[in-house]
């Protein structure tokens, strides 16, 4: 292949970016889900401003 270093650099860059963004998003989602679950459990599962239903949906997802 001609100009292989340039091609590999471009693909490597795109791959690194995709991994960085997707792993970052997945970790953040997992952490927030756990925090929200802990918090709602601490509140004794009382309806919080009518939001508990949707909150649980997020937790169970």
């Amino acid at each position: 292949m001609t100009h292989l270093p340039y091609i590999l650099a471009a693909y490597g860059l795109a791959g690194a970016l995709a991994l960085y963004l997707s792993i970052g998003a997945a970790l953040r989602l997992r952490r927030d889900r756990a925090r929200l679950a802990t918090l709602e459990a601490a509140r004794g599962r009382q309806p919080v401003d009518g939001q508990t239903e949707t909150g649980r949906a997020g937790v169970s997802a």
Binding site: R31, D32, R35, L36, G55, G58, A61
Partner: peptide, 13 residues
């Protein structure tokens, strides 16, 4: 979508 879900949860927290 994943980030937005996390964002909504953070907002709720």
């Amino acid at each position: 979508v994943a980030r937005l879900r996390a964002g909504v949860m953070e907002h709720r927290i």
